[in-house]
Nucleic acid binder design. Structure first.
Length: 222
DNA sequence: AAAAAGACCAACCGCCTTCTC
DNA sequence: AGAGAAGGCGGTTGGTCTTTT
């Protein structure tokens, strides 16, 4: 059994330059992880949690500073329409951006009343089309994919009750697939920041005729 | 010029999952 | 196997800056 951490009161509030320096030195020396050891080895009076957060959201090399680009906004919008508030997942498709940053951005920009109705329409539209396309893929084109394909993945799961044909279950299944690492390997383009950043099998047919997206980006750019 | 409102963002909190012993 | 620690995540808060009235 590991020893409990000390009961000392951790410092809270904004980080100082000196604390940032100590944390950076610690990570450069010991690498990321072992956050609970930060205070012991660096002299910082910060909790491991706080240290990790500071590093991940602010100090980590490669983080982008400055406003999000229109492309990044678009990715956030679309991924949120599919994934919901899975900020860390969304952030994983935006190199240099953190989940906290995206979460903050979403709250201040897309949660506005003006955007809400548009976004809701997109969500509904996407989900409806995803469900219908997913069915088409399963019914008509299983041979198009290898062992990581949608149909084989569903079979491999072999979960009792996953054949229940409710929209909720189907949506859940699709979301499980999208979040599956193998699924990403199979269907996502190398760079999620390029023109196509969605699994082609599901999105291809919906992208072309979806005028909602175009009008939305026009609104955002206005 | 000053107060109020809104926007932005760093950081904390609590819960859940994973890991270690 | 189970308890506790550690890590990770999403929600929320509160302080600061900017814009509006």
């Amino acid at each position: 059994m590991r020893l409990r951490g000390s009961k000392n009161e951790w410092r809270k509030g904004p980080w100082t330059h000196e604390e940032d320096k100590l944390l950076t030195e610690y990570v450069n020396l010991h690498g990321e992880g072992n956050w609970s050891s930060v205070s012991r080895f660096s002299g910082l009076n910060r909790s491991g949690k706080s240290s990790r957060l500071r590093w991940v959201n602010y100090l980590k090399p490669g983080l982008k500073k400055g406003p999000l680009t229109p492309q990044e906004e678009g990715i956030i919008m679309e991924l949120h329409a599919v994934l919901g508030n899975k900020w860390s997942t969304i952030a994983s498709y935006l190199p240099g951006r953190t989940d906290n940053e995206i979460k903050n951005y979403w709250r201040t920009h897309f949660k506005k009343k003006d955007y809400k109705s548009s976004h809701n329409k997109i969500v509904e539209n996407r989900r409806a089309k995803m469900l219908s396309n997913h069915q088409t893929v399963q019914d008509k084109q299983p041979e198009e994919y290898d062992t990581k394909s949608i149909s084989s993945h569903a079979e491999a799961k072999n979960e009792p009750g996953n054949t229940t044909e409710t929209p909720e279950n189907k949506m859940q299944e699709i979301m499980d697939l999208i979040q599956n690492p193998n699924f990403e390997d199979q269907f996502y383009t190398p760079s999620m920041c390029q023109e196509t950043y969605f699994p082609s099998s599901i999105w291809q047919e919906t992208a072309g005729d979806d005028s909602l997206w175009v009008s939305l980006w026009d609104q955002l750019d206005a």
